Lab assay of single mutants.
Amino acid sequence: EEERTFTNEEEARKAKKEAEKRGLRVTVTKDGTTWRVRIG
Results as ranks from 00 to 15, higher is better:
Glu1Cys: 12
Glu1Leu: 13
Glu1Gln: 10
Glu2Val: 13
Glu2Gln: 10
Glu3Asn: 06
Glu3Met: 09
Arg4Ile: 14
Arg4Trp: 15
Arg4Asn: 05
Arg4Ser: 07
Arg4Thr: 08
Thr5Phe: 13
Thr5Tyr: 12
Thr5Asp: 05
Thr5Gln: 07
Phe6Leu: 02
Thr7Leu: 09
Glu9Ser: 05
Glu9Thr: 02
Glu9Gln: 07
Glu10Trp: 14
Glu10Leu: 11
Glu10Cys: 08
Ala12Phe: 07
Ala12Met: 11
Ala12Asp: 00
Arg13Glu: 13
Arg13Ala: 11
Arg13Thr: 13
Arg13Asp: 11
Arg13Phe: 15
Lys14Arg: 12
Lys14Glu: 13
Ala15Gln: 03
Lys16Cys: 14
Lys17Asn: 12
Lys17Pro: 01
Lys17Trp: 14
Ala19Trp: 10
Ala19Gln: 03
Glu20Gly: 03
Glu20Tyr: 04
Glu20Asp: 04
Glu20Thr: 04
Glu20Pro: 01
Glu20Ala: 05
Lys21His: 09
Lys21Gly: 12
Arg22Ala: 11
Arg22Gln: 11
Arg22Met: 13
Arg22Ile: 07
Gly23Ala: 02
Leu24Gly: 02
Leu24Tyr: 10
Leu24Phe: 12
Leu24Gln: 07
Leu24His: 07
Arg25Lys: 13
Arg25His: 13
Val26Thr: 03
Val26Trp: 01
Val26Asn: 00
Thr27Tyr: 09
Thr27Gln: 07
Thr27Ser: 09
Thr27His: 07
Val28Pro: 00
Val28His: 00
Val28Phe: 05
Thr29Val: 12
Thr29Tyr: 13
Thr29Gln: 07
Lys30Val: 10
Lys30Gly: 06
Asp31Gly: 02
Asp31Cys: 07
Gly32Leu: 03
Gly32Gln: 03
Gly32Thr: 03
Gly32Phe: 02
Gly32Asn: 04
Thr33Glu: 15
Thr33Ala: 12
Thr33Gln: 13
Thr33His: 12
Thr34Phe: 12
Thr34His: 11
Thr34Ser: 08
Thr34Gln: 10
Trp35Leu: 03
Trp35Ile: 05
Trp35Asn: 01
Trp35Lys: 01
Val37Thr: 01
Val37Gly: 00
Val37Gln: 00
Arg38His: 13
Arg38Gln: 10
Ile39His: 03
Ile39Leu: 06
Ile39Glu: 03
Gly40Met: 14
